[in-house]
Write a protein that binds this DNA or RNA. Sequence first.
DNA 1: TGTACATCAGTGAACGCGCGTTCACTGATGTAC
DNA 2: TGTACATCAGTGAACGCGCGTTCACTGATGTAC
Lengths: 181, 181
Amino acid sequence: MADDQHPTRLRLLDTALELADDRGIAALSVDEVVRAANVAKGTFYVHFVDRADFLVALHQRFHHCLRQQMRSVSADLAPGAERLRAGTTAYLDGCRHATGVKAMLASARGEPAIADAVAASNDRFARATAPDFRALGRAHPVEAARLFVAMAAEVALLELQRGRRLAPLRQALWDYVVSDR
Amino acid sequence: MADDQHPTRLRLLDTALELADDRGIAALSVDEVVRAANVAKGTFYVHFVDRADFLVALHQRFHHCLRQQMRSVSADLAPGAERLRAGTTAYLDGCRHATGVKAMLASARGEPAIADAVAASNDRFARATAPDFRALGRAHPVEAARLFVAMAAEVALLELQRGRRLAPLRQALWDYVVSDR
DNA sequence: TGTACATCAGTGAACGCGCGTTCACTGATGTAC
DNA sequence: TGTACATCAGTGAACGCGCGTTCACTGATGTAC
């Protein structure tokens, strides 16, 4: 899916992800994006209907990469603590090196243009993680998964703000999941 | 603190909180706020240095109310599960009826103007909650508190989106804290 | 009590700026015959 | 092989609009003497 897109379109998206990390999504102007991507302003509208359409594509592109990384790591494992841990580690380490994570995690929910897309992908994340919590014997696996996703996003955001892995924080996240119950 | 402020200033802030619930913080324009508050545009700059200053005040006002509600409920209790539960319930029920919660929870972090203020108040929240996790015997009480705050915010946001209390979600939140360990 | 002055919230027209979007056009590439 | 036409990414000047901010001014209230 990632490679069947037009190079110029991809360049606009990737440039925007870099810019967004500094300024946030709301501050991404068409002017700024095309200037940074070395593309004429009209070209922007060759590839995107309007700015909102562009932001949705931006969100999609971001999540596509992360999801692939996670799937490749946990595909062979049976639902449970081990699979959850593998997926989570892949997610957190992926976030540390992907572009635009900070912007996506921090400001995506506040953008009306992509609020729906964010809600949908959070749902998808939670549903994909729910089987692990079901295997762990949780009474409310879907809800537990949903909250776990929120915690993982918080860890990713804090690690990005601090610029390094935060082992105690990851441990605290893990302590919430595995208890000698 | 809340009542020593000028009435017009308060009117601008409260009007903005109402507007923000629909459109998000980023979409709050000075024009729109003064129009909705029935105040001349110049008056805005009598009370606030600029738009960023206004947003910071907005964030302060929002958190001030919530914090008071929580303190009044948990002040007499000793750190531990019971105090945590009382404070959390006060927080969640407070969020369901306060104005501007959705905007503050969803889009505050993405606004460069108030990102620092948000980070600071998250810190404060976490530090206030850490003693409960220390009392519960957690290995990383500060980190656990931080993630708990993230989960509570997620619950508040989902309840607002759905427009009602979500009992299973609250239960899942609680299951993360009390386990028969 | 009356007069003069200071203070300060409030006003709204005016400003320059950067935004998102449009559109007539270019030029390279592919296709038909 | 040469000619005519179609397709389509790319261009950049131009547009109208709404933004944040300024500023000279008003008018009510308080203070001094």
